[in-house]
Amino acid sequence: MTQTPSLAQAHHLRPFVLGLPKTELHLHIEGTLEPELIFALAERNGIQLPYPSVQALRDAYQFTDLQSFLDLYYAGAGVLITEQDFYDMTMAYLLRMRAEGVRHVEIMFDPQTHTVRGVDISTVFAGLARALREARDSWGLSAYLLLSFLRHLSEEDALVTLEQALPLREAYLDLWIGVGLDSGERGNPPEKFARVYERCRTLGFRLVAHAGEEGPAEYVRNALDVLQAERIDHGVRSEEDPALLQRLIHQRTPLTVCPLSNLKLQVVDELDQHNLARLLRLGLCVTINSDDPAYFGGYLVENYLATAQALNLTAPQLATLARNSISASFLPDARKLALLDELETYCQQYYAESQAMPQ
């Protein structure tokens, strides 16, 4: 077998990653609100922000943990009022993904963040869906929606939110395919939401859940056993439990890892300490994602690039991460196979051209 080049040593790192057919599976759409757009929406909606300038807001993005980020995140989301606001936010993200070679996205959104402010849940759905369908119809970027429950609130609140959303389901069958669980993990174990997940399971929704970011490995196990989550968002602390780790490997349970988020929120002190490469070598179905990119310093490609450089990932390893992102998606099998074929063709061509380059 011809040895493939290490991208950490090659001159084509960014072009290679840009060209990789890939998906993004762990993305909070409210976390894509760039400071410039926050200010623009605030002005449009007559909202006074507690920051004098875009730069002052950006300078506030110094987080010590998940909660310090969430406080600013929820404040930023307060500028979202109208359907057009949600459309503008979503389209800005989708245009970035088009430029980054992304073929499919699975977007989490937090209705409770908006309904508590008096924004109707139908407004949220309408704005998101208009942008997603426009991107799909105009340039073929497909997308699904994952309605995420806020775990720092009660399960009763989550059940109310689900019931508010269900009358809209038929209108968004092409987009809304699943539910998730996010927000502050500490003190909010997965089993707190057992009933709402059981309800969603009987309704046929796909199930994901944040676990093992700041919470212990036990939260990952309970997300699997109690919530019956099909995919674990983050999951990096699974490594603390060898039996759980073997289970994840054996069951090929996807972990949607967000390296720059983990760095920004001090899950790791330095990116070269991240366990992503180790988990990948062990055979886990690890994927790279951006989480809340406007706040954490990089969208999907930047997460690939920063991780590759910090952990000295090779071209085949980056291709495996892209392959995992396709396999771990909720796309129909036929679409997955088409994307996997596209990925293999792309990699073979890249490796052949790299070998032909003068050393």
Rank of each mutant, 00 (worst) to 15 (best):
Q112E: 14
I249G: 04
L128D: 02
S148Q: 02
R169D: 03
L150C: 13
L20P: 06
L145D: 01
S238F: 00
A334T: 10
L276D: 05
E198L: 11
Q164T: 03
E170T: 10
G178S: 04
L66F: 06
L276S: 09
S68H: 10
R195L: 11
R247H: 13
L145V: 05
L49F: 12
F125D: 01
A77T: 12
I107T: 11
P190I: 02
Q266P: 00
E198A: 15
I232F: 06
L66D: 00
R221V: 07
G46Q: 09
L260Q: 13
E43I: 04
T202D: 12
S290E: 13
E155D: 11
R130L: 03
A10F: 15
G78D: 07
L162T: 08
I249H: 10
E218T: 06
A334F: 06
E134H: 09
A10W: 15
F39H: 14
W176A: 00
E344S: 12
E213H: 01
G283K: 09
L72D: 04
H210F: 11
H28L: 08
V267L: 13
Q355R: 15
E270N: 04
R96P: 04
G180D: 15
R221I: 04
Y351C: 13
Y350R: 09
M89A: 08
Y197A: 02
L331R: 02
A223Y: 00
Q228P: 00
R96G: 07
